[in-house]
């Protein structure tokens, strides 16, 4: 799977800012896509590669912060760097809590912006890798028999073989077989590995049922 080169997405209603940012990012060799509004952004094609969003806080129709929430709700994961003409602290706190990479006040030092962009791109790159891993884990998890999925959940929950056997109503030996099959199918080299995988699959530390892994 080949990724597109990293791309900076810019949403700003001010054409001067748009042009200047476009120019600036290009001058450091980044791919740039600019949008005059959030609607334009949503309708545009998102590149398949690491990217980040440089978002003006104040936009006509809806603010940048609202748009951040909308994206999150739409499960569109994208590191966001906020730009604002005048920032106040509550606004920046809210943005950062909501996962913003950086909150920059215009006019900003270019290095700050570029650093933030780099960080965001790295984040996205990592995120994209994690996402791919999780995809693979989900695939492996899907390969498990229902009984193996149950055993995995019980293992992650910290049950002993005897307990697992009691839970699923088999002998301890049978439970051991299921466990071994599960470990092999999940390509987990150790119990620790399995715990990490379980974390990626959203079942870490919980007695997760198999119904919680249907999402992909």
């Amino acid at each position: 799977m080949t990724d597109d080169p990293p791309t900076v997405l810019v949403v700003d209603d001010d054409p001067s800012i748009r042009s200047a940012l476009h120019d600036l990012f290009e001058s450091v060799g980044l791919r740039v896509a600019v949008f005059g509004s959030t609607r334009e952004f949503l309708h545009g094609r998102r590149p398949n590669g690491p990217c980040c969003l440089v978002l003006d806080v104040r936009l006509p129709e809806r603010s940048g912060l609202d748009f951040q929430r909308e994206l999150k709700e739409a499960n569109i994961r994208l590191p966001i760097i906020f730009l604002t003409g005048h920032a106040d602290i509550p606004m920046s706190v809210r943005a950062m809590k909501a996962g913003a990479v950086e909150f920059l006040t215009k006019p900003f030092r270019d290095q700050d912006l570029l650093d933030a962009v780099q960080l965001a791109l790295d984040q996205d790159r990592g995120a994209r890798a994690t996402e791919r891993l999780v995809e693979a884990l989900r695939g492996r998890f899907a390969e498990l028999t229902p009984r193996e999925q149950t055993v995995m959940a019980l293992v992650v929950a910290g049950r002993m073989n005897k307990q697992i056997a009691a839970e699923i109503g088999t002998s301890e030996v049978t439970a051991k077989v299921h466990r071994a099959n599960m470990m092999r199918k999940m390509q987990a080299a150790s119990l620790g590995d399995l715990f990490v995988m379980a974390g990626h699959l959203g079942m870490a530390g919980k007695a997760a049922g198999p119904d919680r892994t249907d999402d992909a």
Partner: peptide
């Protein structure tokens, strides 16, 4: 008003940095 002034200023800074890079 500050926003109105900051907009071109931010653009100027960005363009200036770009220019330097070019």
């Amino acid at each position: 008003i500050a926003h109105e002034i900051n907009q071109p200023l931010a653009a100027i800074v960005a363009s200036g940095n770009a220019c330097r890079n070019w």
